[in-house]
Every structure is written in C-alpha cells, then in structure tokens.
Write a protein that binds this DNA or RNA. Structure first.
Lengths: 215, 215
DNA sequence: TACTTGTCCTGTCATGCCGTCAGCTTACCG
DNA sequence: CGGTAAGCTGACGGCATGACAGGACAAGTA
C-alpha cells in the first residue's frame, strides 16, 4: 500500500517518469473511447503519447495492466457513490427524491467513465478476478448501503420478510449499471433520457420499499 | 436473403466447405468460453480445427466476422424468448408465474450462451451497429411484448399514466440481461440462485403491474 | 566547469501473428 | 478420362510484441 510508483524493472519513478506514465494512461484512456478494446495496440498508445513502445513497457506489463491501473483510479473516485444512498430515508417524498438522485448520480458517473467501465465489465464477466474486484469496489458501496436500507425497512415490518435484501440490492444496482452502459442504445431505440430516469427511479423505489412513491 | 453460403472470394461452399466452416465456428465458440476475447487469435482457432489460418480467411474476413456469424445463429434461437411473454396475463396468480417463468427462461438462455453474449454486449456498448442489431433482435422480442403488456394495463387504468411503457420494459429487460451475465458474480458475492430468482420476478412484477404479486 | 550518479528514453532485434496469393489437391460430372 | 470448380496450404511481406543495452538528460558535487 505504499504510494511508491515503480517501473516494471524495479526502479523508482521520479517526477518526469510519473508524468510520462500518466500521459500514457491518459492516451490509453482516450484510445479506449474511440476504438474497440480489441484493437487498442501498444504502439498506437505510445505514438499518441509522443513516445516509443519500449517506454510503455517500462511502466506496464501490457495493455491490460495499464487498463487495470486506470480502472483502479476510477474505482477510487467511484467510492463517493455511496453518498447517494448513505443516510437517506426511504419514506414519503424524500424517498422519491432519494431514488431520483441515486439514478441521476449513477447514470452520470457511468456516462463519464463509460469506456473504461465497458472493459471492466467484460473482464469481470470473463471471470478475471482483478476486474471483478474493481467492479465490486464501485458497486459494493452502493449495494451495501441499499442492502442495509432494505434490512431496516424489513425490521420495521414495512417490507415482506421473504425479500432477500442482498439479492434485491444487487439486482437493482446491476440494472442501473446495465441501463447506464447502454444509454446510447436506449436513445437509438426511441427512449429519451427524460423518460428513462423517472422509470428507473420508480423501479428502485418499488424494489426497496415495495410501494409506489408519493411524489 | 439467399441461403447460399459463400466464401470471401465469391465461391459457393459445398458440403465439405460448409463442414469446415462450421468446425471453425464451433472451435471459435469454444475458444471464447475459455479465454479472453482480446486474446483469441486466428491461428489458435485454425490449429484447434486442424486446419490452417489461410482456410479461416477463406470463410471469414476476420475474427469479428466469425463472431458475428455465431451471434446471428444464437439470435435466431433467441427469438423464441418471446414465447415467455406473449399471450400471458399479468393479473392474479398467473401474473406471478408469468414473472417467474420469464426470469427463469432468461437466465437459462443467458447461461447457455454466456461467452458469445459477453462479446455481443461489448460490441454493442462500443457502438458497433451490427452487434447492437443482434442484441436488439434478442431483447426486442421480449421488450416489445412487455411494452404491449404495460400499455394494455395502462389502457385499463391499472397502471399509472406517467409510466413510459417502453422505458419500463427496456429497463427490466436490461436488468435481466445484466444479472444474467453476472450470475457467477452474484454467487461469489454470497447471493444464491435460489434467492436471486424470486427477487427478480418480484421486480419484474412490480415494474409491469405496479403491484405486489399474489402468490 | 567538469565529473558523477541515477533516472529516463529509444534504436534495434528476435519472435510470432496477420492477411494474401499462387498453386496444389480433391471431388464431381459428362 | 479430362475438365472444372471447390477446397486447402506453404510461404511471404508487414506489423506488433517484448526484451535489452546503451545514449540523453537532469541534478547534485567538488
């Protein structure tokens, strides 16, 4: 857990080195949004960064290694998604706005990081534990909070006993992630953002509380 | 729209040729389930099929082209998913079993084709229209049927007017697809299939009818 | 200024996959 | 048996990969 940035061959990276490294990550990031993951080549990233392939291999074992790095950075930022759920109440009007803001925050985060999230999703689905862990890191914060919310409501007798809080929270979060990563698809299919959001919020509210929201 | 199978250079494939072609597709399919999409090489597929790379290029322009072929086959089979929704009623006990069977059928289909569906999902998310179209072909049958169901219920005044049928159906289907493609993930996270299914069914029922099911 | 030290970058090379072509083999038909 | 089209492959130029050794550069030291 040291902050020490190291090259592949063990040297400690200085100021200049870190700048180069970061530039490579930025260029890779950009590349991922403009061309299919399968076609991203080290040589292209290096060229774009105004350096040579050899330099790339000084800092990363391969493309995947660099992608993991970017994903890690994003996951750290993504931890703030918890704030969308934590300390929220799900009753009455504030319940509805909680649902709305959760949906909003989620879609926004996904839109901002869609390229890298696609790759993380693929890696996780393919069974790669490193990607899976990162995906967890992002989703867990939200999922856990939601799980707690459901448990509380259950304890108060406001939600049926036979609902599994973890399964429900997980399903809702998976839905949000899926819809978020196919936002463009929905638009192309004739569903506008404006009508998508309230429907998602409705589903979230229904899932958590089991009741229609009072708006 | 002819059933004529043609090679890249325009010849018509005979019995032997079609067999080879199919063998290549099968090997590619197998390869996709055992190694990351990014690492699937033409030469490996060819070796596995006991033939040479040059032969592969006789039948497919590249790996992606072959993947599209497999996906197309799967999409054709997937059209039968419509039957999970079409002609179903969403009231009373039969409403609950409709939800249950929809979830069941969906998860099962996804489990059977998870490798290829992963790649289709990635392609669609990356904005490739061909993959997007295939994804549509599979999901649309279900989505459209669900959309109709919601519209009918709305017409009868059983569902709020401000629900967008298309957005609701799309979100639910996206959820099912997402959960299906991360089934292993859920298990690793401690959520069992057995508790996942009823929760998904509950969400589907809530989304379509706006009411808790009577079991 | 000249020298030293450690960081940083690149030219180069062996290796391996890509994608194409010419040409050989096989099957079918009159 | 000879012709024709299908089917397959060896071989090749081209390009990405990944490793290494050595040169460029900045910063500190005498």
């Amino acid at each position: 857990m040291t902050g020490q940035v190291r090259t592949v061959d063990g040297r400690v990276a200085g100021r200049r080195g870190q700048a180069t490294r970061q530039k490579l990550l930025d260029c890779l990031s950009e590349m991922l949004s403009s061309s299919p993951y399968r076609d991203v080549k080290v040589i292209d990233v290096a060229r774009k960064a105004g350096t040579s392939p050899a330099t790339f291999y000084q800092y990363f074992p391969d493309v995947e290694g660099a992608v993991l790095e970017i994903a890690e950075q994003m996951a750290t930022e993504g931890a703030q998604l918890t704030s969308l759920v934590e300390g929220r109440t799900w009753v009455g009007k504030s319940g509805w706005s909680a649902a709305e803001e959760l949906v909003d925050g989620f879609l926004e985060f996904w839109r901002r990081n869609d390229a890298i999230l696609r790759v993380v999703d693929l890696g996780a689905a393919e069974g790669d534990k490193r990607f899976y862990k990162i995906r967890m890191k992002i989703l867990n914060s939200v999922t856990n909070s939601l799980t707690e919310s459901v448990k509380e409501l259950q304890a108060k007798g406001k939600v049926d006993k036979d609902v599994s809080p973890a399964a429900m929270a997980g399903s809702l979060v998976a839905m949000l992630a899926a819809v978020a990563s196919h936002q463009k698809g929905f638009q192309a299919w004739g569903v506008k953002q404006a009508e998508l959001k309230p429907n998602l919020a409705l589903l979230v509210h229904l899932g958590i509380t089991g009741k229609k929201p009072t708006r």
